[in-house]
Computed example of a mutant assay.
Amino acid sequence: MKDKAQIAGINIFPVKSTSGIAQSRAWVGLEGLSFDRRFVVTDLAGRMMTARKFPKMVTIKSTLLADGIVLSAPGMNNLHLATCDFERDEFECKIWNDRFFAYTTTEKANAWFTEVIGSDAQLLFCGEESNRFREKLGTRVSFADAYPLLVISQGSLDELNRRASHPQTMSQFRTNIVVDGVEPFAEDGWERIAIGEVEFKVGTTCQRCVLTSVDPETGAKMANQEPTATLSTFRADEKGAIFFGMNLVALNEGVIEVGDELRVLETRNPVRYADADA
C-alpha cells in the first residue's frame, strides 16, 4: 500500500445500465447498496435490456425522491414515478441465467422507456427485497449482473490510463466503491475487507464486456476501441477475456462513507496476467 487505503467514491445505479449517482454515505444491505440496481428495463418477455445493445441507456439519469424516483433523458420530458402508484404485479424476469419474480411499475414508465430505447420495453422493480437468491453467493442480489457490489482502486484506473491511448473514466466501469491510497490492482489480492461498519467477502475478478467502451456521457463508442484494446494487453486471460475490478459480498449490514479507511483482513494470491507491454 502507498498510504492509508480509504474510500474515495460511492456510486449507485438505480436503474440497471443507466447513469449512476455519487453518494457521500450509503447503507450497505446484504443485497447491495440501498437503491442500487433496484429497477431493470426488460423486453415484454422479461429479458433484461441493457446498454450493451442499447447504448443510449447510459444517458438516462435518476433522481431519488422520498416517494419514488424521477428519470431524465435527452429530448424527453422527465418521468416522475411514485412507488405508491406501482402496479406490483409479479412478472418473471431473466438476468443472465437467473429467472425470478420482479414486480411491474406503471404503463407510463413502460411507454417512456419504449420511446427512449426505441424498442418495446417495460420497467420492473425488486420490491422491498429481491426475490433473486444466488446460492453460489449465499445471498440475495438485486438486478446487478452477478454480485451485489463492485470495488475498483483509483490506482488501477491510473495504471490503465498510463497505458491507454486517451483517458478513461471510472464511470465507464460502473463501480460501487472506489478506493484510493493503494497500489494498482491491490484489490486483486484481497480476500476479506472491512469498510466502516461492514465486512465484505471479496469474490471473483470482474470480467468486463463491451459496455465499458460506451461513453457514459453521450452513449457513443469510445475511440480506438478503448478501454478493451489496452486492457487486453495486460489484463486478459488465455482465452482473451479481460478483467478489471473485484466483486464483493457484504457479510453484514451497515453504513459506509467517503473517507472511511479500508482495512484488509485477509489476502489471497492474485491472478497473474501476461503483460504484452512488459
Rank of each mutant, 00 (worst) to 15 (best):
V151Q: 03
E129K: 15
A121M: 05
L137N: 05
A144D: 01
R132A: 10
S156E: 12
T106C: 12
E135Y: 01
T114P: 07
I152C: 11
G138L: 10
R140Q: 09
S130H: 08
E107D: 13
G155D: 14
E135N: 10
L150R: 02
I152N: 09
G155M: 12
R134P: 00
A109T: 06
T114E: 04
E135P: 00
I152Q: 10
C126H: 04
E135I: 09
L137Y: 05
R134Q: 07
G138I: 04
Y147Q: 10
F113E: 12
S153E: 04
G138E: 06
F133C: 06
K136F: 03
L124I: 15
E128Q: 14
L123M: 07
F100M: 03
V116D: 05
F101L: 14
P148K: 03
T105R: 11
I117D: 03
L137P: 06
K136V: 01
F125S: 04
L124S: 04
G118E: 10
F133K: 09
Q122W: 07
F113R: 04
S153G: 13
F125L: 09
K136T: 09
G138Y: 03
S142P: 00
A144L: 02
R134S: 13
S119F: 14
R140F: 08
I117G: 05
Y103F: 15
T139K: 05
G127V: 00
A144Y: 11
L123Y: 14
F100W: 12
N131G: 08
K108A: 13
F100N: 02
V141I: 13
N110G: 14
R132M: 08
E128G: 00
K108H: 06
V116M: 09
A146K: 06
C126N: 09
L137D: 09
E129M: 10
F100Y: 15
R99F: 07
F101G: 00
R99W: 02
V116Y: 07
F133P: 02
A146I: 05
F133E: 00
T104N: 05
T139P: 02
S156I: 12
A146G: 15
T104M: 03
G155C: 11
D145Y: 07
L124V: 12
V141Y: 07
E128W: 00
T105N: 07
L150E: 05
E107A: 14
K108Q: 14
E129N: 10
Y147K: 01
T106A: 10
R134Y: 02
A109M: 07
G138H: 02
D120N: 13
D145I: 04
A102M: 11
E128F: 00
C126I: 15
L124W: 05
A146E: 15
L123Q: 06
Y103C: 01
V151S: 14
A146Y: 15
Y147I: 06
E129L: 06
C126T: 15
R134I: 14
T114Q: 03
L149Y: 03
L124M: 15
C126K: 08
F125N: 01
A111I: 08
K136N: 06
